[in-house]
Design a protein around this nucleic acid. Structure first.
Lengths: 271, 271
DNA sequence: AACAATGTTCCGTAGTATGGAACTCAAGAG
DNA sequence: CTCTTGAGTTCCATACTACGGAACATTGTT
């Protein structure tokens, strides 16, 4: 199927590396041979090369885990920085489409969600800059998505009553979250701040893990009951395309590069 | 062990991948050519292969960042799981050596430190199981190390007074942290719980980032003023070897990638 | 002690990766 | 508008590199 020439060794090594990186637990040499279908000697040589370069590590029992390169990438928060930069064009497009304030949020410990990227509303009445701001999970659309899809956990203790519409009963919230899972998006109507309505949808990474959420927020005057489903549709579509960029349910890769790729005449924000 | 034979292509691809993973920002094709000293065509072929396998990603401007494989590893917390398993033997040895309770801790948001691995004391009077437990940063040895080395931040608000020896003044704590940086280890004497003394040292990952801390805790009766420096020495040694396993200050890896290296098979020290 | 299982090294050969050059595409310059 | 320049990909003959079977180490098992 995939027969791009001139990279057999690299492709094989990459497959071994992926096999190691995907598994939650260390992988044995034998499993790697089985998974790759390569000769023992070849596998050994490739793994030694990967190990020498710090891409895999071998434990005392001879099993393999991802190496220092992965570890340091993960610890220095590379994935989050990456998320922001990969997300930027998607946010921009969603902002363009809805005209409202768009945010990307991730879970923080302590029952909070932090907005890590934003595109400002096109209207004069819109959100201020929320980047870096953390808000409670239970009263934010972003937070509800993260809760609903298991990317965050409610803290113990009472749920803060931000407005008179904030849901503070855990039972009521649980129902709400079930609805979120079913619909695929969350809505908060004046639960965080009077007059503020937000819609959010989950962003998945390769492996189906929810890593964040995408939200569209606007004043209740614009985001009426009638408008919300439309906003939600756009938001979900954007979240899906972002997920795709992160490798979630990755589209079938072109087996041959010969077929011309669909041209991207997408103009990027001038800068 | 260092006999790079039969893996030229994989080594080159690995170096390209590392170059991409190390940089905080996307790397351009031209930079990669310069850094690797490879021919354009070769570089292009290798990068295409890495991209096809999801190890690197190419943005709209054609620059490279780490791919989905890295992203999903990082998001599912692979690094932390890895830390625990890599650390286990080191903890065990430190426990053997000191006889006291040994813990590995990492920073959590909200001014807390969580113990993620433990080796129990050999004595009857020792720690209970603290894995999963979180404690405030300012009154734990682990926490002080994380604070001193920039792996955690103090929360706003008052610092909880756990015992009458807990340091609750931010100024006093700052001095304490300066001392920690200088000595290379932190000590808490009955600051978290009466009768409990702990010593902790930082664990670094590749890149010099502090990812966690290693602690030895015991009753004040055993960890006397005289014993503490000795315990600290062991603790620091263990932390250093754990850091080494994570790639910190790893033995000289040719400064970057050796440029202008025509095709001479360099004879690195005789095999 | 002999065996079994697991992983590494050897080595001749086949076939794969290599890099210069040609080519494509896009963006400025004239 | 055409010409030029730069960035990146594809092509292709060559020869060097990676391949894999088998021998060789190294441990663990009966």
């Amino acid at each position: 199927m995939t027969s791009p020439t001139g990279t057999q060794a690299v492709d094989r090594a990459a497959q071994l590396l992926i096999e190691v990186a995907r598994h939650r637990d260390p992988v044995s040499f034998a499993e790697l041979i089985a998974a790759s279908g390569l000769a023992k000697s070849t596998t050994s040589r490739l793994l030694t090369a990967l190990e020498r370069n710090g891409l895999v590590r071998r434990d005392l029992a001879g099993r393999f885990s991802p190496g220092e390169v992965f570890v340091s990438y993960a610890w220095r928060g590379g994935a989050e920085a990456d998320l922001v930069s990969v997300a930027q064009p998607v946010l921009a497009e969603l902002g363009e489409e809805t005209g409202e304030t768009v945010n990307l949020g991730v879970a923080r410990d302590g029952g909070l969600v932090e907005q890590i990227a934003q595109v400002d509303s096109k209207y004069l009445i819109g959100g201020t800059n929320w980047v870096g701001l953390t808000v409670p999970l239970h009263c934010a659309a972003l937070g509800k998505v993260l809760l609903a899809f298991g990317a965050a956990e409610l803290p113990k203790g009472r749920l803060e009553q931000r407005t008179d519409r904030t849901v503070t009963s855990r039972a009521a919230l649980a129902e709400d979250l079930a609805a979120v899972r079913e619909r695929g998006y969350a809505v908060t109507i004046e639960e965080l701040e009077p007059g503020l309505v937000a819609v959010a949808a989950p962003v998945f990474a390769d492996g189906g893990i929810v890593v964040g959420a995408l939200s569209v927020s606007g004043p209740a005057s614009r985001q009426t009951a009638a408008a919300i489903p439309l906003t939600a549709r756009s938001c979900m579509a954007a979240a899906r395309s972002l997920s795709a960029l992160l490798g979630h349910e990755r589209p079938v890769r072109e087996s041959s590069m010969s077929s011309s790729q669909p041209k991207k005449t997408e103009e990027e924000g001038a800068s």
